[in-house]
């Protein structure tokens, strides 16, 4: 029985079809990735219970206020946003064990050993009239302070920057340098303002 040769299909057009699909996806999609500053909101409070102000030592709190003119005051001292990072860094690290800066508690951390963890909390209050841009800038500077401290700690204990660590080491560093921001209810200057 003679084998019959199948005639070759003309597949030139299939390239055109896939080109069509390609252009469709190019037009309907966008490359811009989702990026931003991730945050966690505190869990909702039970109804009708006033938020109990935890009895926190005054030295452990960094009061950051942003008013409706986008001016920043840190513990009563007005400063530009560019200085906030260093202030927050000093606050979280307290390198000289200054009694006016937060206390530290020695905690055993897996992978690092005993580490003096700062008890500092940043209390962030903004005005209802604060611009969103300023709010993000402040969050950004606080995040930058923590990121720099985490990088320094990572270099010291693991010899690498935080981003280059594996997830277990990252968890250890995160436990050593926690990011604690507490957001107070906003003030409203236009309504007389709750101070």
């Amino acid at each position: 029985m003679s084998t019959r040769k199948t005639p070759g299909l003309n597949t030139g057009a299939s390239a055109d079809i896939s080109f069509l699909l390609l252009t469709f996806f190019l037009l309907t999609s966008s490359i811009n990735t989702e990026q931003g500053i991730p945050r966690k909101l505190p869990p909702p409070k039970a109804d009708d219970t006033e938020e109990v102000k935890a009895d926190i030592n005054k030295r452990n709190v960094l009061n950051v206020l942003v008013n409706y003119l986008d001016q920043i005051s840190v513990n009563g001292e007005v400063m530009p946003v560019s200085e906030l990072k260093d202030k927050a860094k000093e606050f979280f690290s307290n390198p000289t064990n200054d009694p006016s800066l937060p206390e530290k508690v020695n905690k055993p951390i897996e992978g690092i050993g005993d580490f003096a963890v700062s008890k500092g909390v940043v209390s962030l209050t903004n005005d209802q009239g604060t611009s969103y841009n300023m709010y993000v800038q402040v969050q950004n500077e606080l995040q930058r302070a923590v990121n720099e401290l985490r990088d320094e700690t990572s270099l010291q204990y693991f010899g690498k920057k935080y981003d280059a660590l594996d997830s277990a080491a990252q968890r250890a560093v995160t436990a050593a340098i926690p990011m604690s921001i507490s957001e107070a209810p906003p003030m409203d200057w236009s309504k007389g303002g709750a101070q």
Binding site: E34, P38, R39, K40, L41, P44, Q139
Partner: peptide
Amino acid sequence: NNALKINYAA
């Protein structure tokens, strides 16, 4: 509404 994971797009 217990949607606690947020992101400030920037």
